[in-house]
Structure formats: structure tokens, C-alpha cells
Design a protein around this nucleic acid. Structure first.
Lengths: 205, 205
DNA sequence: TAGATTGTTAATCGATTAACAATC
DNA sequence: TAGATTGTTAATCGATTAACAATC
């Protein structure tokens, strides 16, 4: 029996739902509805119910959803009911900021190492990490069993770094370099480029 | 005659096209085709032609597109044929990194000021900027005529900062705080949260 | 019970793709 | 001319919404 394929676009909304639920929990709320969640997120209630129904039945008619329970379910679905170690490559401004970022806590993610190729940076402290030599990238990542990496190098080095990470078993890359990475089908890539986001808005100004 | 409304999703792809074209220019290329561009970006050639056709006819049958010309047209469409000044709010790791980011150059954007509310940060240098007191946020932004801002404050301050920015005439906000901002309809918001991007990928691991 | 809200179905809406005449 | 590639149309595909029976 082939497992049902969930559209990417649906998977992409789950982290947004989860973040909102965690926020409600922090506000000491216990129950919510598709309508309330939708209003907070600017998404229709019908869409939220449809999205969730792809994975099971998590609500109660007349009552809505237990926030705690639904958040738990989403964490399981997204596989962030555990903690994933992340390697950061590039110890410039962005790499350093992301290595020190506090926002990963309780969200299933944790930075555990940072690399650079600059002799002046190798060995210095970035937050609680000592910058490692990129020359040891592959073996270090293999040994640590790391599956997720963030690339924060200059554009011209990003593809080469990606290739090395993938050879070392990395399966998910968050790329801060403003360049499109080419990767095999079994590897997932997401891009963060502030300019792209900003240019999406200048059109409307 | 009402102007044709372009779908958001089409506008959202234009900056990607532009970035790729600028890269080709840097590689000293002069002509490209929808097919080549599509291969680089993992987008179908038909979709690229369809997207571009919403705005005009930029290519030549049999030859393709002049990279220089098409890039120029996209810059005009996206209104980045000029330079937009940006204010950064929050001078922590992320705000500082983004204020120093070199990647805005030649892409129609430029950071011109950075604010914080921490007395220990106000007055210090971040890149070429002196951190300003957030107490003066509104008037300073009005005076400078700034329309675009990036929020890199803690979550609990982000909505309040957004409200102030909007009162001061800001029309586009790039939000790095991991929280959904509520804004009037005429204001555009984009969110960057590395955790959201990462959780989109952990599902597939 | 009355009110509320789910999960699901069918209808609608919108986006993508395939195909090809036009033409460089 | 022959080959290539555009811009566009129509067909297909997929996503969103509206509506409602089920039921808490």
C-alpha cells in the first residue's frame, strides 16, 4: 500500500501552524479552533482543517483542537520531536549570527559546529563554538552523523561546500548564499536571501 | 482601463530570474533562453515565458533573450532600477549582520540606519553606522522618507516596532522575529525564520 | 438540547504545462 | 532555407473554498 504523498505546499505550512501553537501555549491557552488559528495567520479555516486532515483527525467537533496535543502531533509529523544537530559553514557575520541564534531551542534544532576556511578565523570562538577548519569538513560531519547544514559562505564557494556536505551525508541544506545550488534529488535545499524577499515587495511600492 | 493584476506568485519569481540573469552577466554571457534559465532554476521554460509575457515581449524568436536587456526590464518592473533606503531595527547579532551585509549592492537596496533600545548599544558602531536610539524611530524615518524596514528585535517587541514603523510611513517590512506580524492591508510583510525553513525539510528526512 | 466546530465532499478557482503558429 | 525559440492558447493539473452532515 503506497503511502499518500502530501503536497509540498501543505508540508510548508505545518511549521507555521506549529510556531503559532507554541506561541499560544506560551500565552497559557489550551484550546484553539481552525478559525482562530486562521485569523492569526491570515489563512482560511477551511485550509487549515484540510491541511491537518491529510495527517489524521486531531480535533473534536464543537470544541476545536487541544493546542498541546496538536503541537505534539505536528512535531512528530515534522520529525522535530527530537533534536537535529546542525553544522554551519562560514563564520562571517551571517554564519556567526546564525550559530549564536537562540531561536532554535525547543524547536527540534541545535547548531553544534561551525567551519571556515580563513586561517584568521579558524580557532576563534563564536558563541560557544570554536571555529573549525573547513579542510576537515567531510570527516567531521560524517563522524558526528550530521544531516542538516547551513551555508553562509561567499557565493563562489557555496556550490563546492554543498557538494562536500552532500558527500558527507548531509540531506538538508539551508543556503544563505545568494546563488542557486544544484543538488541531487534526495537532498533538500531552502534558500534565504533578504534581497529576494525585499524585491518581492518593492514591486508593490 | 484597469491595469492587469499580476498574481503574487509570478511577482515572487521575478527576483529569482533577475538574480540568475545578473549571475550570467557576471559570467560574461550575453544571451539566454527560457530553457537555459529554467534549467538553472529548476523551473519549466514554459512557466518562465508565461511569467515574462505578463509584462511584455522581451525576447526574440529563434534567439532568446538579451540578458542585459531582460535584467533591465525586470529591474524596472520590480522598481529596483533605483536605490531604496532601508532602516534596520535591532542591533543584535542578526540586525548587525544584516546591516553589514554586502549583498544589497547593485540590487536596488541599501541599509542607511540601525536602531536599538539598549542603552549599551545606542551610540556604538555597527559597520559604518552608529546605532540610533529607538526612541527617535518615527521622526527619523519620516524625515529620511524611508519606506522599507527590517525588524530584528526579540519577538515580544516586534509588533510594537512594526506599528511604529507603519505610522512613520514604512510600506514594506522584512521581519526576522519568529512571530506573525499583523499589519494593515497596504503594508507588505515578508518573514525570514530559519527554523521554519529547516522544519520544511526535516519532514522529508 | 442548542451551539459550535470538525472532517470531508464537491465546486470553484487559479496555476502549470503542452503544443504550435509565428518569426528571427 | 533550416533550426531555434518566442509568445500565446487551450488543456490539464492542483489548490483553495464553500457547504454541510456528523457529533462533541
Amino acid at each position: 500500500m503506497p503511502e499518500k504523498v502530501i503536497p509540498d505546499i501543505v508540508v510548508g505550512r505545518l511549521p507555521i501552524y506549529l510556531r503559532s501553537l507554541q506561541r499560544m501555549l506560551a500565552e497559557n491557552r489550551h484550546v484553539t479552533s481552525s478559525q482562530e488559528l486562521g485569523e492569526r495567520l491570515g489563512i482560511s479555516a477551511a485550509q487549515i482543517r484540510k491541511d491537518l486532515s491529510q495527517f489524521g483527525e486531531f480535533g473534536k467537533q464543537g470544541t476545536g483542537y487541544s493546542i498541546d496535543f496538536l503541537a505534539d502531533q505536528l512535531r512528530q509529523i515534522l520529525k522535530v520531536d527530537r533534536v537535529w544537530d546542525i553544522a554551519v559553514v562560514g563564520a562571517g557575520d551571517i554564519g556567526s549570527a546564525v550559530a549564536r541564534y537562540q531561536g532554535f531551542a525547543n524547536r527540534g534544532l541545535r547548531v553544534t559546529m561551525i567551519f571556515d576556511n580563513d586561517p584568521d578565523k579558524i580557532g576563534i570562538q563564536v558563541g560557544s563554538f570554536t571555529v573549525k577548519d573547513i579542510a576537515n569538513l567531510g570527516p567531521t560531519i560524517v563522524k558526528a552523523g550530521i544531516k542538516i547544514a547551513m551555508i553562509a559562505t561567499p557565493s563562489k564557494e557555496a556550490q563546492e561546500v554543498a557538494d562536500q556536505l552532500i558527500s558527507a551525508g548531509v540531506k538538508a541544506i539551508l543556503n544563505y548564499a545568494p546563488i542557486n545550488l544544484t543538488v541531487p534529488e534526495h537532498v533538500h535545499v531552502q534558500h534565504i536571501d533578504p534581497v529576494i524577499h525585499l524585491q518581492r515587495m518593492t514591486y508593490y511600492l
